[in-house]
Amino acid sequence: MSHIAIDGSADAGAASESGHGGGSVSATGMWTFLATDAMGFGGLLAAYGVLRARAAAGAWPDPRSRLALAPAAAMTFALLTSSLTMTLAMRAPGTRERRRWLLATLALGVAFLVGAAMEYGHLLGGASMGLASDLFASTFYVITGFHGLHVLAGVVGIGFMLRAKHGAQAIETMGLYWHFVDVAWMPIFSVIYLWPVR
């Protein structure tokens, strides 16, 4: 495990040998935050599941009749790839290489946000799926919007990482957050975009 800071200075002792610093304060703090955040996403997905299960037969729309699958799949691949680039940034042996992978992660995060904004624009404009059109629309916007805010926060965080001096531990903690954003997108993509209606 490398201990080189983004500015090239040594950061010995900042990260433990366990990779994500199992015993470090920042990693433990991030894992604790992620535990609460997982419950937040869980609550929203539970609300979606209950509303969908309660809906009368035929009242819940087939997601594929409203949502375009190809752009959502492209956004999923962007997030997946960004998890790979973030991990490569965390493990990069040199400053320049680390910075390059962080930039790639940032670009993929921005690409995801652009995709989400374009999807919202299409749904709110052309497809006429307003925020309060029906329960499917409301839960869709709340859940994907909540996740989009997480991606935005991650993009801002990575931007700070690129601008200022940060040690390997800070980058690894940021990496944990970024991977969680990817983990949170998995059930959203599967449950909201792919699960068929009866």
Partner: peptide, 10 residues
């Protein structure tokens, strides 16, 4: 990616 097993305690 998150190496959850390596930092199991946290």
């Amino acid at each position: 990616f998150m190496r959850a097993r390596a930092s199991w305690r946290a």
